[in-house]
């Protein structure tokens, strides 16, 4: 497969949360606002690129039977180090994303990509796969977060860092009562379900016309 395709597959064809259905825990848990989704997606992307590169480098020397624990150790180490350095050198970013970082360890996307792709491909492809998959994941979380935030809170928070806040008020809570359930846990399942259905509908539509 070409390098370009390895990069773009994460956005649609093999989108981690909409097609592979990996990493559902963070997908459902943190998408209470658009920015939270984006933040989680970005933090995951960084870790995913790092873990893909390291694992594609060391895959050759790891015996088959202990590969999963080895990958987990590598990923957990990487996440902890990212957490520490962020806390030390970018405290504002850490206080914004700090919440999501421990969650990344248990994100199946990281282990999934390590096992299914990085361990079988060269470093360059593994890095491209990490970038593509990470950004695809971030985009999906951003969309899901936007839907939930607009329906559940009437706002759309695109960016929040230090004192900078880029937030759109879509409608006023006093005028239209938001559907609070979309911010709560059940809303995550409902919104994700509709998003999945929509994606499959477009795919089906494309197939018919092709």
């Amino acid at each position: 497969m070409s390098a370009g395709k390895e990069f773009t597959k994460g956005f649609w064809r093999e989108n981690p949360s909409l097609v592979l259905l990996l990493g559902m825990c963070p997908t459902l848990a943190v998408t209470t606002s658009a920015f939270n989704g984006l933040g989680m997606g970005m933090a995951t992307t960084v870790v995913l690129i790092g873990s893909n590169i390291i694992i594609s480098l060391i895959a050759g020397i790891i015996p088959k039977k202990v590969r999963i624990p080895s990958y987990i150790v590598v990923i957990a180490t990487l996440v902890t180090m990212v957490d520490m350095f962020m806390a030390a050198y970018a405290p504002d970013l850490h206080s914004a994303l700090g919440l999501f970082i421990p969650l990344i360890v248990v994100n199946c996307i990281i282990l999934g990509r390590a096992e299914a792709f990085a361990s079988k491909n060269s470093v360059g492809y593994a890095a491209l796969d990490g970038i593509g998959m990470g950004l695809g994941f971030a985009l999906t979380l951003f969309i899901l977060g936007s839907i939930r935030e607009v329906l559940g809170n009437g706002t759309l928070t695109v960016f929040k860092y230090k004192e900078v806040l880029l937030q759109f008020v879509v409608y006023h809570k006093e005028a239209i009562r938001p559907v609070l359930v979309f911010i709560l846990a059940p809303g995550a399942f409902i919104a994700l379900g509709f998003l999945l259905a929509f994606k499959n509908y477009i795919d089906g539509f494309k197939k018919k016309n092709a």
Partner: peptide
Amino acid sequence: TLSLISALAAGALAFADKMT
């Protein structure tokens, strides 16, 4: 192999902890 990887990871973490 697993011990080696774990030891390396522990070393890396200790180093990161010391630095930060």
